[in-house]
Design a protein around this nucleic acid. Structure first.
Lengths: 131, 131
DNA sequence: CAGAATCCATCAAGATACTG
DNA sequence: CAGTATCTTGATGGATTCTG
C-alpha cells in the first residue's frame, strides 16, 4: 500500500525495489563523478578541444581529463575526432547517446538549483548539533 | 550558434556553460555514489529500519550504510526517527526534499534501462580494440 | 538492533616529467 | 597540443570489535 507519490523507482509491483535501483546504481557508478558530469555538461554545447575543456573546467588535472574522456569514449557517450595535423588537433563531442543523457542530467541540475538552499540550511542545522 | 538539441545545460545564453555544470557537479558529489542512490531508491517506497535497508542492498557494509544515512540526514533528504525502545528501533524515511529528488533520479534510471545495451555494446567494441 | 570506534589495505587522484 | 608514464599520498571503504 505505497502511496502514489513514492515514485516509480520501485517498478511496477514494488515487489523488488532493488531492480531499478541497481540499474541506477550502475549508471551512477560510471557517470556519477564530478568531472564526468562537468565534461558532459560542457560538451553539450558543442565540440571542444582537449585544452579548451581543461580551461573550461577549473581544477581538473590533465590526467583526470584524459581518464574521464577515455571513460566516456569507451561508453560511447563521447566521440573523439583526431585531425592528423601537427601540432595535433583533437576534438571531442557528444555522440547521440551522450546527448540523450543530457536530458536527465539537466533535470538533476534543475533540482540542484531549485533545492540548493534547502540542502544548505538543512546542513547548517545539522552541523549546529540540532538533533 | 548552438543547435537547439544541445540541451539547456548551458543556461540562457550559453555564455557560461560552467554555471549549471557546477551546480550539477555539487549534487553529484553528494548523492553521486552507488550506495546513496540505492538507499534513496529503497526508501522511496516507504520507511525502513536500519537492518532492513542493509538486507535490501546486497553488498553494503554496516559502516557504509551508517555513513550514507548520516550524509542523507545531514542534507535533509532523510528523516531519522528513533523509538526509545529496547532493543532499539530506528526508522528512516525520505523527507519531502528527499522525495523531490526521486523524480530526477527516476528519469536517470529510465535512461539507464533504456540505454544499458547501447553502453555495453559500445564498451565491448572499444575493448575489442576497434579504434 | 543500531551505531561508534579502531585498524588496515586499496585505490583514486594530483604533481611532475617525458614523448610524438 | 595531446597524451603517456611513474610516483606518492590521502581519502575511502571493508572487517572487526565494542556498547547502550
Amino acid at each position: 500500500m505505497k502511496n502514489p507519490e513514492t515514485l516509480g523507482i520501485t517498478g511496477e509491483d514494488a515487489e523488488d525495489p532493488g531492480r531499478e535501483c541497481m540499474a541506477l546504481a550502475q549508471v551512477i557508478d560510471r557517470i556519477g563523478d564530478k568531472w564526468t558530469v562537468m565534461v558532459v555538461g560542457h560538451l553539450s554545447s558543442g565540440a571542444m578541444r582537449f585544452n579548451a575543456i581543461q580551461r573550461a573546467i577549473p581544477g581538473i588535472s590533465h590526467r583526470m581529463l584524459t581518464l574521464t574522456l577515455r571513460g566516456l569514449q569507451r561508453d560511447g557517450l563521447v566521440d573523439r575526432r583526431s585531425f592528423g595535423t601537427v601540432p595535433p588537433r583533437v576534438e571531442y563531442r557528444l555522440t547521440a547517446l551522450g546527448q540523450s543523457l543530457c536530458a536527465p542530467l539537466t533535470a538533476l541540475a534543475a533540482w540542484a538549483s531549485d533545492h540548493r538552499r534547502d540542502v544548505e540550511t538543512a546542513r547548517h542545522r545539522y552541523d549546529a548539533g540540532d538533533s
